[in-house]
Simulated scan of single mutants.
Amino acid sequence: MAEAVFVLTGAGVSAESGLGTFRDAGGLWRRFDPMRLATPEAFARDPAEVLAFYDLRRRGVVAAQPNAAHRALAEAQARLAARGGRLFLCTQNVDDLHERAGAEAVHMHGELLKTRCQACGGIHAQHGDLGVDEPCPACGRAGGLRPDVVWFGEMPKHLDRIDEALRGSDLFVAIGTSGSVYPAAGYVAEARALGLRTCELNLEPSDNAHLFDLVRYGPASEIVQEFFR
């Protein structure tokens, strides 16, 4: 195993925990219109509808449990750290299953179990439903809280930190990603340009599978454990 590993995870790593993916045949965006539910304009137009959708997703996250893939990544992160290495875990997922498995992760698309106040910018834990008129715990303004997730048309989070980590790695591993959402889908090409080895662990080939040096396909709970053993 390399000593500086960059791992990118997508919805596929949480699928076996009962959380839906987004773009496959039964994916979330096949059943719901993202332009009505996941944009700043949608929230401004009908905050009650948007919050109800995210309440439903939040309940699913709270009820879910980490699976063997989450635990394998947490264990690999701890093993590498113990011998002076590093596993930088960058996730596109807005759930907290990596953390509940014991890992530290950078959430480039935000976190569903947090809210952000549009008035003061304060970020707060949110495990229950979020009412339209709920006041901000910091500034007291009502009606300004939104899920702290990245909507369509918004800039992903922590891009500078992610870029620095990628440049300091010697192995890039993508797990459970579609390879269709940028900028995350471009990381494998950037990794190759930097001279990193690249590996895809996925249920089926992603849109950019041809860019990986090594590919392994199957359920994440099986192949992630095998790879990081």
Rank of each mutant, 00 (worst) to 15 (best):
D55M: 13
R79H: 05
V215S: 10
P34T: 07
P66D: 04
L145V: 05
D129P: 14
A63N: 09
R216D: 12
P205D: 06
P137R: 10
A76E: 09
A82P: 03
E49A: 15
L130P: 14
A11S: 11
Q77C: 01
N93E: 12
G20V: 10
A220D: 11
A193Q: 08
Q92Y: 05
G60M: 15
P219V: 09
L37D: 02
T9Q: 03
A69G: 13
R116M: 10
C199H: 06
N202C: 01
V149W: 11
G12A: 15
A220R: 03
G153S: 11
C136S: 01
L73H: 07
F43M: 14
G10M: 12
S169C: 13
C90I: 06
S180F: 01
A125N: 13
P205W: 05
N93M: 13
L159H: 07
R192G: 03
H124F: 15
D213F: 03
M155L: 14
P156C: 03
A189H: 04
G122M: 05
R83M: 08
R59M: 14
F152G: 09
T177L: 02
A138G: 08
C90F: 09
L113A: 13
R31H: 14
D96F: 09
V150R: 06
A44R: 15
D46F: 11
P135Q: 10
A42Q: 12
A25N: 06
A174M: 01
Q225M: 03
R141Y: 02
Y182A: 05
T21L: 02
A101G: 10
A4Q: 14
E204D: 15
P156M: 07
Q118F: 08
E99C: 06
H124K: 08
D213N: 05
I175P: 01
G179V: 00
R79C: 04
R86V: 05
R141L: 13
G179Y: 00
Y182W: 09
Q65N: 10
E204H: 05
F212L: 05
Y182D: 00
L203H: 11
G102P: 12
G218S: 08
V215A: 08
L28F: 06
G128D: 15
P34Y: 02
L196Y: 01
S178T: 09
A2L: 00
P156G: 12
R216P: 06
